[in-house]
Design a protein around this nucleic acid. Structure first.
Lengths: 220, 220
DNA sequence: AATTAATTTTAGACAAAACTAAAAAATTGT
DNA sequence: ACAATTTTTTAGTTTTGTCTAAAATTAATT
């Protein structure tokens, strides 16, 4: 598989929403910063390799073979992200670009040993699940705080709004990636939420609650 | 820089023997499994980017700019090799192919953090020196046991002969990569050498002595 | 020094992956 | 239902890196 083919496969997987919808040529082109005509060419090629099911003017969907390729790339991407954050002390928001390169390294032994070295993580630093060798993964249990009922508990794994202002706010309130929070109370009136943190409990506004993701600690 | 350009730069550096000899078109072609005509094309391109000095029919030599590019690739290659061996438990002889891919990952931050994570190693698992960010490196002090005078001491970092038979012999005699040896005595008659190991001293034949590399523990 | 041999370069072609411009099919709106 | 719009495909180029075959240059040999 060429680098370019792998990128198309990955994009098609993501746009198809777990391989349920067929994906439009234009959508792929937009996502990949290329032209629709280029997409048509590549999709034909992928179809000949039976990585996708494609009929003219009907969009594409990954074949089972293609889906497994996509999952193996995603597995690599997410394992590398864990490595970058856990071992090299990158912050969660810096790792994507580098992981996009690392995900194309071809070596099964490498990825097996990396997995072991990292302690077989189940989720990446953004809370997204890591497929196993066979492409099996627990579906994401990453939720915004505003979507959770009282009593929910989870590890903070990401933000929606990555503006400097928001990150500064988090810092001031001692909220950091990797912290465990519990939803204590939801105020009906304004949607603000009281959560427990290591340093006590704080109340956060609805706006904040809709910008913080928790990875729910829920057994598979 | 494209992947292909980087491979050419690296090959030219290695063939030029620390950038001292000018390198023949045919030599590059042979080393890279391509045709001389392809090399001519690429060399022209590199020359236009002033990465090499090239005159028709005269061979190529890296420019200072090109030399620094080569050293940065070699730095990445060797740091990744250390990572693969020290952190992922690859054996020294499995790492080259994977490192050839990893060396092309583009991220200064990545390589800085990797360097720190590994404890700023000075040599790779084969005993070859790792250039620093500015392309400065201590010259190799990797020698065959047969080349050393009595009293020399060093860490075993590689073999010349990587046949299964030889590796089995090493295993049987409890000689492993990373072990420290000292040359105790050299037998004039047959060139055999007595060396001290962790488990006492053993005598090795000249043939063996010409196949084991020590990284001499010699301050820079 | 002249011929032969080896090396290197040129010229022209090809495959991969992209592009532009134009044609074809599907979708939308009235 | 049909014209207008959007989406998708086709056809024809371009660029990068490679190739083959032939020409040019350098090196070797007698």
């Amino acid at each position: 598989m060429t680098l370019s083919e792998e990128d198309y496969i990955k994009t098609i997987y993501h746009l198809s929403d777990f391989n349920s919808k067929s994906v439009a040529t234009n959508a792929i082109a937009e996502q990949m910063n290329t032209k629709p005509s280029s997409v048509t060419d590549m999709v034909k090629k992928l179809s000949e390799k039976s990585l996708v099911n494609y009929k003219k003017y009907q969009g594409v969907l990954l074949s089972e073979k293609g889906r497994l390729v996509a999952l193996s790339i995603i597995r690599k991407h997410r394992l590398w992200e864990v490595f970058l954050v856990d071992k090299l002390n990158f912050s969660w928001d810096e790792v994507h670009v580098v992981a996009e390169q690392l995900e194309h390294i071809k070596s099964d032994a490498l990825i097996d040993k990396l997995d072991a070295h990292l302690g077989y993580p189940k989720v990446d630093p953004h809370g997204d699940p890591i497929p196993n060798k066979d492409g099996v993964f627990t579906k994401s249990v990453k939720k915004l705080i505003s979507e959770l009922p009282v009593g929910s508990q989870g590890v903070c794994v990401g933000v929606n709004d990555s503006s400097a202002a928001f990150l500064k706010f988090l810092d001031k309130n001692k909220i950091a990636l990797g912290d465990t929070f519990k939803v204590l109370e939801i105020e009906e009136f304004d949607g603000s939420v009281t959560i427990s943190t290591r340093s006590g409990s704080i109340r956060i506004s609805k706006q904040i609650a809709t910008n913080l993701f928790l990875e729910i600690v829920d057994e598979e």
